[in-house]
């Protein structure tokens, strides 16, 4: 796969069809993969990487890159393709300046997930035929990728590419029996006290580093309300429980109906807060109240929050459902 992608990237860059390539390369550590913009064939030959550790969603980078001179080649996993499609819908990416190659994806992993398996002292990770060879200070271990998939990949919602110019590999389908809402469902069935305790436990760890916001392909505002002194709610430090709640509620609300559930927010959170749960709660509510809606599925779709029907549920539906006390 990596070689096919490299070949294609070199061919397009060499012919001048594209001016730059969005892909992945090694980060600080071998196993720490980072998004990268390649502008020369040499860079691609030496640094371009694609393997099961290439988690980062590249689509957001197009907000800037697609406004530059010349076309940008981007490699899109299905998740990234949904994000790009939503960004095109919102006019955030100039479609004509993008050459999108869809790539098939069987799920991604990263060092954090591997560490959760009890593997410590990782020095290097290589991959061969779906099996990770993990070199650690204490010796080598071989682990199949499917055993260490990230939660979002275990609960993969779709292997389809809503937008692409060309595909490498086979086009997949939406996953019908995806169980991504089971955790939201579990929390909904708690009592309000339990839910409050659960989220305080999670959100109180927030250090307001803004990593979730910065990585989120739906958070592409030119200037975030939280950074804008004139907005009246600009605050940067997480110094209080309210602040943590406020930031995450408003952020989730602003991306509601637009969030494609790519799971990047939770992936990058240094405090391992399961932020995707807030987004999934909105997605689950939208699906249940207004009919299934997958942002990014079709370019030009109307978000449920900019739409209505005359017979929508009244907000008191919230009082009537969910929670142990009402079950």
């Amino acid at each position: 796969m990596q070689e096919m992608m490299k070949k294609k990237a070199i061919e397009l860059l060499g012919s001048g069809a594209v001016a730059r390539v969005l892909g992945w390369k090694k980060g600080e550590f071998d196993y720490d993969i980072t998004p990268a913009v390649f502008e020369s064939i040499e860079e691609i030959e030496n640094e371009f990487i694609y393997n099961s550790l290439c988690s980062p969603n590249l689509s957001k980078y197009l907000v800037k890159e697609s406004r530059k001179e010349g076309k940008t080649l981007i490699f899109l996993k299905p998740c990234d393709s949904y994000s790009l499609s939503q960004l095109i819908t919102e006019h955030r990416v100039v479609r004509e300046n993008v050459y999108a190659i869809g790539i098939e994806c069987y799920g991604k992993t990263d060092a954090d997930t591997i560490k959760e398996k009890g593997i410590k002292g990782i020095t290097k990770i290589t991959e061969n035929d779906g099996v990770l060879n993990i070199e650690t200070l204490y010796g080598n271990e071989k682990v199949p990728v499917y055993e260490v998939l990230r939660e979002r990949c275990v609960n993969c919602k779709s292997k389809k590419h809503p937008v692409y110019d060309e595909l490498i590999g086979e086009e997949g389908q939406a996953v019908d029996d995806c169980e991504r809402f089971s955790e939201v469902d579990r929390i909904e069935r708690m009592t309000p006290e339990e839910r409050f305790a659960f989220f305080r436990g999670e959100l109180s760890r927030c250090i307001r580093c803004n990593a979730c916001r910065n990585v989120c392909p739906a958070c592409t505002c030119e200037k975030c309300v939280f950074d804008n002194d004139a907005s009246g709610i600009a605050q940067k430090a997480a110094s209080d429980s309210f602040e943590e709640n406020m930031f995450h509620i408003i952020r989730a609300f602003h991306v509601a109906g637009r969030c494609t559930d790519c799971g990047e927010c939770s992936r990058v959170c240094p405090q391992n807060i399961p932020l995707h749960l807030l987004n999934r709660k909105f997605i689950k509510d939208i699906n249940e109240l207004y009919g299934n809606y997958q942002p990014g599925e079709n370019i030009g779709n109307r978000s449920p929050l900019t739409d209505y029907t005359q017979n929508d549920a009244e907000p008191n539906i919230v009082y009537k459902r969910g929670g142990k006390d009402n079950a």
Partner: peptide, 11 residues
């Protein structure tokens, strides 16, 4: 200066 041009308002 703040507008993203996302068309949400228009809708």
């Amino acid at each position: 200066l703040l507008c993203n041009g996302c068309s949400s308002c228009e809708k």
